[in-house]
């Protein structure tokens, strides 16, 4: 059975069956990273370019490790060294990359829709590693993998996503993916950080932390970007932390076995108290570990590797 997707642009392209297939594949890849020799020849001879127009440590490292463990030839281009800073257009960048015949481009870009722009114009596969405030599909998939691993299922769970929903591509992708898998999604944050039409996203909207956390199976905290405070969206991180930060007290409102997630990088003491970030409910490093497996699965599936395996 072929995967049927050439690109990974957003969670809206996947059915529940697609997502289950990706997670199952990721589960089978996870073990590779624990071997003595952490490498399989699956993508030998494939060329993958990671082009990051925005700074990233975790996502970029995760993709690169995933690629290397599958034996692909990889190349990294970052904004500071790319021709973009010299005024090259995205179209010209794309054409030049295309001329080198890569198989896959993994792109992170500050403008929503940039990966779609490449996918429409180029022959290679495009993997969206985060575009503007739009989507971050591999992050949502690693979150789903972690939830499924810890909870055994995704459908029927109550997931509270707390923080800067308006500017978060992680939130967008997770809301879509969790809805597709039949979870109940709650969004919480001050109204300045909730997007227009949030109620139409298929989620309950909460402007207080307590009601959002009550009875939740999963608590997903989003990073508060320091640059958002002080101007118009937030008066201070101190006040934010008081009303929307996750701490040992309000975490008690969630189910006893609730897990705590964060896509990183964390602001300890702002959206999440250190004692919670390091506490026994946190699965934050499981997310990072699963990120490599999920990205291996995605690269494998869009490369048609599944056909090789059959």
């Amino acid at each position: 059975m072929t995967f049927g997707h050439k690109h990974i642009l957003g969670m809206d392209q996947f059915s529940a069956d697609d997502i289950t297939r990706i997670l199952d594949t990721a589960d089978s890849f996870k073990e590779i990273s624990t071997r003595e020799i952490k490498k399989v020849p699956t993508l030998r001879g494939k060329t993958i370019i990671n082009i990051f127009f925005e700074a990233s440590t975790r996502t970029r490292a995760s993709f690169e490790i995933a690629e290397k463990r599958l034996s692909a030839d990889t190349l990294n281009i970052s904004a500071s060294t790319s021709a973009l800073v010299k005024g090259e257009t995205l179209e010209d960048t794309a054409r030049n990359l295309e001329a080198m015949h890569p198989d896959i481009i993994v792109i992170r870009h500050g403008h929503s829709g940039a990966p779609h722009y490449l996918a429409e114009r180029c022959n290679f596969s495009v993997v969206n590693a985060g575009d503007g405030a739009h989507e971050h599909p591999s992050q949502a998939l690693l979150d789903l993998m972690t939830i499924r691993e810890k909870k055994g299922t995704i459908g029927g769970l109550t997931v509270a996503i707390v923080g800067d929903i308006a500017h978060s591509r992680v939130a967008r992708s997770n809301i879509i993916a969790l809805n597709t898998m039949g979870a109940r999604v709650r969004l919480a944050g001050p109204r300045t950080l909730l997007p227009t039409g949030a109620e139409r996203l298929g989620a309950e909207i909460h402007t207080d932390m307590q009601s959002a956390l009550e009875g939740a199976d999963v608590v997903m905290m989003l990073r508060i970007q320091q640059e958002r405070q002080g101007r118009t969206l937030l008066p201070s991180t101190r006040e934010y932390s008081r009303f929307f930060g996750l701490n040992p007290n309000n975490l008690q409102l969630a189910k006893d076995d609730a897990i705590v997630m964060h896509p990183g990088p964390m602001n300890r003491g702002v959206e999440i108290a250190s004692s919670v970030a390091d506490g026994d409910r946190n699965v934050i490093l499981d997310q990072v570990e699963n990120g490599v497996a999920v990205r291996m699965a995605l690269l494998y599936l869009i490369s048609g590797g599944d056909k090789l395996a059959e």
């Binding site: 929503s112 829709g113 575009d131 405030a133 739009h134 967008r172 997007p195 227009t196 039409g197 949030a198």
Partner: peptide, 8 residues
């Protein structure tokens, strides 16, 4: 809502 969905 379209802007929300598109992340614009």
């Amino acid at each position: 809502f379209v802007a929300t969905e598109l992340g614009l």
